[in-house]
């Protein structure tokens, strides 16, 4: 019994390691393949059978990308959209969530508001994108970064407000009540008492917003066709091009995702907290 029990345990452990190894390969091999393709010489790209590991590493695709002023503009636009969206979202949503949490609303009304905000996050966005396109056309904002930013705010503000509401409702009220007795007005209470306590939550929300905005495609592609293009449109643009341009296509995808992967590794703790907070607590 003990012998076969031990054998079973060893087999189970081997199976577990094997399964995890397969899962890790499934994540890493496609990513490695993308990076290899971005470093591969044009003539080694389209051979049959394929050359997977390039014989010589070339940076020509990246060089060509950065020599093109359009790439620089895409990158700048993406950076502007992401940082402005994140900044406005965090300020507006954190304030709104604090206001909602301390407004003293009946639980029934509060959950109705929460439901509406969540609904906005998850209903088919395509329904509002077409009218949004018309509204931006009316305002003369088509093909500007502002059209993209305002569009992103429409998604991120309800979502982050909902997230921060969970955070503020979890904070102990005693400290705030003490500050109130000391005569602090609501803005001071928010700024000096509640916000420092909620800081990790704010960081999570800001990071989630930044990822969402950087990676977003639907809104950006509907309101910005030329001048205001961002990275996601640039990457998608290779699909409709005549012929296959794997080298430049892979390089552009690498430029878009590698900074975000590195950033994610640095802020992993906050990122995970942000994603799970919504699901586990919500």
């Amino acid at each position: 019994m003990t012998g076969s029990g031990r054998l079973r345990k060893v087999i189970l452990r081997v199976l577990r390691v094997l399964a995890l190894a397969i899962a890790i390969s499934a994540v890493l091999i496609p990513l490695a393949y993308l990076v290899l393709n971005s470093l591969k010489l044009q003539r080694e790209m389209y051979t049959i059978p394929p050359i997977i590991i390039p014989s010589r590493i070339t940076f020509e695709h990246f060089q060509a990308a950065f020599d093109n002023p359009r790439t620089v503009r895409f990158l700048t636009n993406s950076l502007i959209v992401t940082s402005v969206t994140t900044g406005i979202t965090v300020v507006v949503s954190t304030l709104a969530a604090y206001g909602l949490a301390r407004l003293g609303l009946r639980a029934r009304y509060l959950s109705l508001i929460v439901f509406i905000f969540l609904f906005i996050r998850f209903y088919p966005r395509i329904t509002t994108v077409i009218p949004y396109f018309l509204v931006m056309r009316e305002f003369g904002l088509l093909d500007t970064v502002w059209a993209i930013i305002i569009g992103h705010l429409g998604i991120t503000i309800p979502f982050v407000t909902w997230l921060m509401l969970i955070v503020f409702q979890d904070l102990p009220r005693e400290v705030e009540e003490a500050a109130m007795v000391d005569g602090a007005n609501p803005l001071q209470r928010f700024w000096r008492v509640a916000l420092p306590m909620a800081a990790p939550g704010v960081a999570s929300a800001a990071i989630l917003t930044a990822f969402l905005s950087w990676n977003e495609f639907l809104i950006a592609s509907s309101v910005a066709k030329r001048q205001a293009q961002v990275m996601s449109i640039a990457v998608a643009g290779f699909v409709t091009d005549r012929g296959v341009q794997w080298g430049p296509m892979a390089a552009m995808a690498v430029i878009m995702i590698v900074p975000m992967i590195l950033f994610a590794l640095f802020v992993q703790r906050y990122l995970i907290r942000g994603i799970t907070l919504g699901a586990v607590k919500g």
């Binding site: 507006v92 949503s93 304030l95 709104a96 604090y98 206001g99 909602l100 301390r102 407004l103 003293g104 905000f117 906005i120 329904t127 509002t128 994108v129 009218p131 949004y132 509204v135 305002i150 569009g151 705010l153 429409g154 503000i157 309800p158 407000t161 009220r173 705030e176 009540e177 109130m180 007005n185 609501p186 803005l187 928010f190």
Partner: peptide, 26 residues
């Protein structure tokens, strides 16, 4: 905690405005 509701309502207003303009109106 609710007697300063005008402050709190003012905090909520900008978010509400954006939601109305970018989601509700479309």
């Amino acid at each position: 905690l609710g007697h300063d509701w005008p402050w709190m309502a003012a905090f909520v207003l900008p978010a509400l405005l954006i939601v109305v303009v970018v989601q509700l109106y479309p």
